[in-house]
Design a protein around this nucleic acid. Sequence first.
DNA 1: TCTATTTGACCCGA
DNA 2: TCGGGTCAAATAGA
Length: 294
Amino acid sequence: MVMEEKLVINELEQGRELAKRLMSNLKDTSSIESSKSLISEILSIYQNAISMLDDKKVLKRSREIDDKYSKNVIKKRKVFEKTEKVSFFVGAGQEKGSIDDGYCWRKYGQKEIHGSINPRGYFRCTHRFTQNCLAVKQVQKSDRDPSIFEVKYVGSHTCNNTTTSPKTPNFSVSTFQEGNTADEQREDIKPTKTEEAMMSFEDLESKKNIFRTFSFSNYEFENGGGGWKGNLFHENQLSPAATTSGSGITSEIATAPASVENSETADSYFSSLDNIIDFGPDWLLSCDVLNWWM
DNA sequence: TCTATTTGACCCGA
DNA sequence: TCGGGTCAAATAGA
């Protein structure tokens, strides 16, 4: 492991520790100011870690592009590191490819995927050629629940242009064990740990009310392990407060009062954070997801 | 006419 | 050899 990677991991571990302290603070309604301070620290640490990773990626990609064009290799497939891939599920109601994450995407291909019912769409940043932005995303409708789109982001944006300011769709994050085959993942579709986070970022620009609409959820199977429905944002869940579907803790969180710290049920929500915050390496490798709210 | 999408072909890695 | 990612010509739509 190179020095930079150790530094990044160290940063992320600090963030995790701070998050744990934050969890404790949130159980104590008298320590709101302390919690706000911790949140700022956490965001700063994650930003540092992401910047470190991005610096490395930008350099690597610049070399890839130089190689590509200098050798006139037009169709050479880029090989990204596994750590650049992030998988998460986005609620339906936003048709494939039009999931509004604030960036401009252009579809450049679609493929039938072996073993999957639904084709996978390939999108790249509109500013790929004007600003050399190599961000790419893949969108595929879930085989298990057609109302769900699985979106994989490869690389992060280096462009400045967005349709609006970059924003986060309401989404449910799930990380999978790296190295598993697609079939293995389908066979054992649950996350390897309690790694699912449900988030709503309605007002991230101001960041004033961060965490008012932010919640983590413990992983839960519906019908004894049968599916994701209870944990996913469906189109009627774009406004979590209006959620009526789903069951268990997920649904409760979706309808949780804005002021979680004062909620009677807040303790029960955050009592499960020990499991969630202990994301483990897979989650740490997926921190591109943080770009959404930075 | 311009821009985005579709789709078959091409290419590479496993 | 196969599966998946990308290209680019054809097509659609504003």
